[in-house]
């Protein structure tokens, strides 16, 4: 059952990704941008222009380009079927390799922010739900509305001004390590983990120090919707018929609380998945404030340079990760709540 469900979800996700790939492929080519002139410059001769167009392959019919991209013409260039996302038009390196270098930065940032946000927001949200209508609950509620509607890039800058410029307790927002330090060997791409693997504890501390403000920034924004969700789901669970009935049956307080917690957790999974996907894409802003060099900044460069293979790859990879996260959380949801049938 479980295996069938997972394979079905993978199949549906794969179809969705194929649809997405084709849609993105055409969409960016239908827009009036001219990547060739961006590459060769406005004043390039028609010959140079034609030469560059041929080199990028954009002189060929769209469908032929698509066929190559999808990997149906490996004799021209490897494509998706061969596990290749193409070659960057700007740097000339395979996009797969570039993504592999940039993606972990973003995953590290988003994951750490999520852990911090959950650690703070879940207890606060539950506290609000357990003391409904009180001053504290009202404060929690207003905070959650506020934090959930903030421009993270501005808060990032504000933190920089406050903690770097004014107080001097945070490093300059110029990357994952100070320019003096040499990074550890890349194993996972997560700076924190790699430094530990390399046994360089000082680098680990330094990486955390550099991650501090960006993670605070994102965790602050994230805490809003998470608190709101936990508070709402918990309040709903506490008002549910079965919690009321558990009290009627005289079950011990601890057991009733367990009932409510489990009931509140189950529906939270979906929103957490959506938030994770949203943050993966929205990390662009935080990354660019702190010059972290993650997939978001890679995306900005790709977009501003009209680097089509890179653009396609970013959209595809982020969507694929989101879909996997959704699936994982749906599985957890189903494990908590037997009503969710596979």
């Amino acid at each position: 059952m479980l295996f069938r469900y997972i394979s079905k979800r993978f199949a549906v996700g794969l179809l969705q990704l194929i649809g997405l790939t084709i849609a993105v492929f055409f969409l960016i080519r239908l827009l009036p941008a001219d990547p060739v002139s961006r590459l060769v410059g406005m004043n390039a001769s028609p010959e140079a222009y034609a030469q560059a167009a041929k080199q990028l392959g954009v002189d060929r019919p769209l469908l032929a380009q698509l066929a190559t991209y999808l990997g149906f013409q490996p004799e021209i260039a490897p494509g998706l079927l061969q596990g290749s996302l193409g070659v960057s038009w700007v740097t000339g390196t395979p996009v797969t390799a570039e993504i592999a270098a940039y993606l972990p930065v973003t995953l590290e940032l988003v994951t750490l922010s999520f852990i911090l946000a959950l650690a703070v927001a879940v207890p606060i949200g539950m506290f609000g739900a357990l003391n409904p209508g009180g001053k504290a609950d009202k404060g929690v509620f207003v905070y959650s509305l506020f934090a959930g509607s903030q421009p993270e890039f501005w808060w990032g800058l504000l933190f920089v001004y406050l903690f770097f410029f004014t107080l001097g307790i945070a490093p300059a927002p110029l990357g994952r390590l100070s320019p003096m330090s040499s990074p550890p060997d890349v194993v996972t791409g997560f700076m924190t983990i790699d430094s530990l693997i390399a046994g360089q504890f000082d680098l680990f501390v330094e990486a955390l120090h550099h991650l501090m403000l960006p993670v605070f920034t994102m965790a602050f924004i994230l805490s809003g919707p998470i608190i709101k969700m936990v508070r709402q789901n918990m309040a709903r669970a506490l008002q549910s018929d079965f919690v009321l009935y558990a009290n009627c049956a005289g079950l011990p307080k601890r057991r009733v609380a367990g009932y409510a917690l489990r009931a509140a957790m189950a529906p939270s999974m979906t929103l957490i998945g959506i938030l994770y996907g949203f943050m993966l894409s929205g990390a662009v802003l935080t990354e660019s404030v702190f010059s972290l060099g993650g997939i978001g900044q890679y995306a900005i460069n790709a977009v501003l340079n009209y680097d089509y293979p890179a653009i396609q790859a970013v959209v595809l990879v982020i969507t694929a990760i989101s879909l996997v996260v959704y699936l994982a959380l749906d599985l957890i949801h189903a494990a908590i709540d037997p009503r969710i049938a596979f």
Partner: peptide, 9 residues
């Protein structure tokens, strides 16, 4: 399923 910010960008 498009990533919102990146698509808009």
């Amino acid at each position: 399923s498009f990533p919102v910010f990146i698509s808009a960008m």
